[in-house]
Design a protein around this nucleic acid. Structure first.
Length: 853
RNA sequence: GCCCGGGUGGCGGAACGGCAGACGCAGCGGACUCAAAAUCCGCCGUUCGCAAGAACGUGUGGGUUCAAAUCCCACCCCGGGCACCA
């Protein structure tokens, strides 16, 4: 037997796989398809431990699925556009493409060294014109369908990246990539109208049974659906007379309309300046507007909201009771949700309550819990008499309406009967309308950066903004650009100058590029048909492979990438290109890999563990197995090199034991047919049972992505085998008819179970120790298991008295309950002495509980 | 504040309501060795006990149950998401 030497084995086996084309697939297979995909990496350079865990999980699923007889698509590519490439190019006076392609080469080599089983013929890089061509094509189709919009809006500007950001890319007021504080700017930008799909994106979350609950919850929160009503308040003129002009508010609590004691506009409210123009209030109001602009996004994001307000001198009429209420402007109302105006009900809303307290505005109690001591006092009042009660805070829960005219006595609260009644009355009177608001905003996709997919549009002074004709795609990024010298797409004459496709006149090309998240929103479709020059993909191929059966990636994409991809899929479906509306059937969100102290690994902390170093020391198979064994994939993992050393020892142990098993299987002299005895038979049966039990357990565990317990079960089988090998030859002789095939079978099973986890290691054992030269274990079927053989004929039961284990008994697996009870009573006779058994519980194959008094 | 997770030995972690701590790491003891490494074997929750054994034990406090880490109620910590969203 030779020694296990991963450094010799791994490169050699990898070459074999490549030459045999083991991972190539096509759509013409009798086998059922399975699409296993991990989120594509950004080519940042060297791989890190997060890559190792993510892609190892995917590779186990892919390899296991192949052995289970699936036609497995398992591709890999690069999300290759993005800012780091540009920054590196500026620093080194080179081109982003060079940095990017160099990094892709580095990563690809690392992935190959890890033994990941990708079909490398299907790889894509988002920065290849062959790929981004179709991203532009999709953009044009979105445009045709009315899903592209240019609008002037306050946007998130990242001063660090010198570009705008989508809402999803702002984390606590800071840039998701560079952590700079985001500023508000008014700019005309390109948007995808994802809000048109808000309801469907929310509803279809229910279909995603294979997604973690927390991800669905996060998406639902982000979409943020609220049912309510738009209610019109009529503006009162400076002369005190109704103007006929309406200001609309959105509210989810129309039931509290009678408690509205003032009215608030956001500082950014469009008509605000006109309301106060030329009045004594103009100065103070405009001061407040200016002051609120200075509040940074980070301050806004960080709680601690001291509210500031200013009376405008104007009034509106409450449509419920005709009362005039003062209009205030306040910084606690935001412009981009609802209508930017709210009706303030201090008794039912904590923010309004605090504001009312601060500025001494009336608090009208109109909703109370029935058990409130003041309820009795207020409940019979039809007309408002009380405008203040002693409350420490607003009452926002369900209660009963009081002082609310005809609605007094009805239940109030979100979606309550009181709310329904008042909305119905408003609708009847033409003063309100039931409606739904979403928190989700349209997706801002334009970026003021070079290294991205150019937006295929042209600005013509005659024709306006027009699309680049399909046949002119792709709009290529110019290669002759000197970013270090400050050149941009906008300053690149050759890129900008063009002719208008409509009128043929001189025109200017759009110089913004698309958010990189547009590239990653459909790449998984491209893998199904990566070399198509006529279309992004052939719908037949996409519909064969899609949806992705198992998607794996980081939880940080719970909203961003996963929401955008769902949106793209739905639009492509509506275009008739896809026969399904959800791209990812099952989603596994892996937890972060942290250092041994639970800290995030970062260069600045100097605690980064290099996968390449680990491979050099222990081999890729040990790294893979150690990562899998560390814990459940969706939990955080604390990286500890001791675990890796232990895994390396385990592989060596398996190596020896498999060789030992094979040696014994062929050794005729060990198995004397005449010397066979009952004990030897029993040992063999135990071994066989363990083999079947473990294969069953490992199969179940891998199906449920419990890779850590799958590996633990394999260890149990290996331990049982070691015991079997140690005990048997010394004390027993076994019939070679039984022993030989059993040793062979156990060796087979161990090697096959290890194949998805340690693929080089298993293949080498398969080909050499097990004698299948030139044949890969990865083309073999997964080991069979027979639940009947896994079942023991004798079982040990715990015997409890009053729920505490007092003893154990061993009985035949098929024993009658009466026999079991008799044995149990016997076993704990001491504890039963002088007591009466009042209840007996028998749990088959587990325990007996005797309840005594 | 709202919505999700999570809290189990020295450590990573196992446990369809049914023997808590599988499996591994670390540690301790032994075999082999001149010795060490490697390997193999054994022990390994806490407290008391020479031992047999006993008591306690899954963040805290209650509850349901023959039986609770697991289910229910209340609370405390940790992580994540959303948030003046009307």
């Amino acid at each position: 037997m030779n020694e296990y030497n991963p450094h010799e084995i791994e490169p050699r086996i990898q070459l074999q796989w490549e030459e045999a084309g083991l991972n190539a697939v096509d759509e013409h297979s009798d086998k059922p398809k399975k699409y296993v995909l991990e989120m594509l990496p950004y080519p940042s350079g060297d791989i890190h431990m997060g890559h190792v865990s993510n892609y190892t999980y995917g590779d186990v699923v892919a390899r296991y699925s192949r052995m289970r007889g699936f036609n497995v698509l398992h591709p890999m590519g690069w999300d290759a556009f993005g800012l780091p490439a540009e920054n590196a190019a500026i620093k080194h006076h080179s081109h982003p493409a060079r940095w990017t392609y160099d990094n892709i080469d580095t990563q690809r080599d690392s992935f190959k060294r890890m033994g990941f089983s990708y079909d490398w013929d299907r790889t894509i890089s988002a920065c290849d014109p062959e790929y981004y061509h179709w991203g532009q094509w999709i953009f044009l189709k979105f445009w045709e369908r009315g899903l592209v919009e240019r609008k002037n809006n306050p946007v998130n500007w990242c001063p660090g990246c010198e570009t705008v950001l989508a809402n999803e890319q702002v984390i606590q007021g800071r840039c998701w990539r560079c952590d700079s504080e985001v500023e508000r700017r008014d700019l005309t930008q390109w948007y995808f109208k994802i809000t048109e799909y808000a309801q469907e994106l929310l509803d279809d979350l229910d279909q995603l049974d294979g997604w973690p609950e927390r991800v669905k919850q996060q998406q639902a929160n982000w979409i943020g659906r609220s049912e309510g009503a738009n209610v019109d308040f009529e503006l009162v003129g400076t002369d005190g007379q109704p103007t006929g002009e309406m200001i609309t508010v959105f509210t989810t609590r129309a039931d509290t309309l009678f408690g509205c004691s003032f009215f608030v506009l956001a500082p950014e409210y469009a008509g605000l300046a006109d309301l106060v123009k030329g009045t004594e209030y103009e100065g103070p109001v405009m001061d407040l507007v200016e002051a609120s602009k200075k509040v940074s996004s980070v301050q806004r994001a960080q709680g601690d909201h001291e509210k500031h307000g200013q009376f405008t001198g104007r009034y509106v009429i409450n449509p419920a009771n005709g009362e005039q209420v003062p209009i205030w402007v306040a910084d606690y109302v935001v412009a981009d949700y609802g209508t930017g105006a709210v009706m303030a009900v201090p008794c039912g809303d904590q923010r309004d309550f605090e504001f009312a307290r601060k500025y001494s505005l009336p608090i009208i109690p109109i909703i109370l819990p029935e058990d409130d001591p003041q309820y009795q006092q207020l409940k019979d009042m039809q007309d408002r008499q009380v405008t203040s009660v002693e409350w420490p805070e607003a009452f926002a829960a369900e209660g009963v309406l009081v002082q609310s005219g005809p609605y007094t006595g009805l239940r109030g609260g979100k979606g309550s009967e009181g709310e329904a009644a008042i909305v119905a009355a408003l609708e009847e009177a033409g003063k309100g309308k039931r409606t739904v608001e979403f928190r989700l905003r349209d997706w801002l996709i334009s970026r003021q950066r070079y290294w991205g997919n150019p937006i295929p549009a042209i600005h013509c002074s005659q024709c306006g903004v027009v699309p680049v004709p399909e046949e002119d795609l792709p709009v290529r990024l110019p290669e002759d650009i000197d970013l270090a010298a400050g050149e941009t797409l906008a300053t690149h004459e050759g890129f900008v100058r063009c002719t208008c496709p409509v009128c043929g006149g001189a025109a200017k090309r759009e110089t913004d590029t698309m958010d990189t998240f547009t590239c990653s929103s459909w790449y998984y479709m491209r893998y199904t048909d990566p070399h198509n020059d006529d279309a992004p993909f052939d719908p037949k191929k996409a519909n064969y492979w899609m949806p992705v059966d198992q998607y794996i990636g980081g939880i940080e994409h719970a909203i961003l990438h996963l929401l955008y991809s769902r949106f793209f899929t739905k639009v492509l479906r509506d275009m008739g290109l896809l026969g399904f509306g959800e791209p990812f059937t099952n989603l596994l969100c892996q937890g972060m890999v942290l250092d041994a102290h639970g800290e995030v690994m970062s260069k600045s902390k100097g605690n980064v563990v290099s996968p390449e170093e680990m491979i050099k020391t222990y081999g890729a198979d040990a790294v893979r197995a150690a990562m899998l064994f560390m814990g459940p994939p969706d939990k955080e993992k604390l990286w500890n090199e001791d675990g890796l050393a232990g895994m390396s020892k385990f592989l060596n142990r398996v190596w020896r034991i498999v060789h030992d098993l094979v040696g014994r299987a062929g050794d005729e002299t060990l198995y004397d047919p005449e010397a066979d005895d009952a004990n030897a038979h029993k040992l063999a049966m135990q071994m066989k049972r363990e083999r079947h039990r473990v294969v069953g357990k490992v199969t179940e565990d891998i199906e449920r992505n419990n890779f850590n317990t799958a590996l633990a079960a394999i260890m149990e089988l290996v331990n049982a085998t070691a015991t079997f090998l140690r005990v048997r030859p010394a004390e027993h002789r076994m019939n070679c008819q039984t022993g030989g095939p059993l040793c062979q079978d156990v060796a087979d099973a161990i090697v096959k179970l290890m194949a998805p986890i340690a693929p080089h290691f298993a293949d080498e054992l398969w080909q050499t120790a097990l004698g299948h030269a030139g044949q890969s274990v990865h083309t073999q079927p997964w080991p069979e298991y027979d639940p009947a053989l896994a079942a023991a004929d004798e079982v040990e039961l715990a015997v409890q008295v009053n729920g505490k284990v007092k003893s154990r008994i061993t009985v035949a697996a098929d024993s009658a309950e009466a026999d079991i009870l008799a044995a149990a009573r016997e076993a704990v006779s001491n504890a039963l002495e002088g007591k009466a058994v009042i209840k007996e519980v028998v749990v088959p194959k587990r325990l007996v509980n005797l309840v005594v008094k």
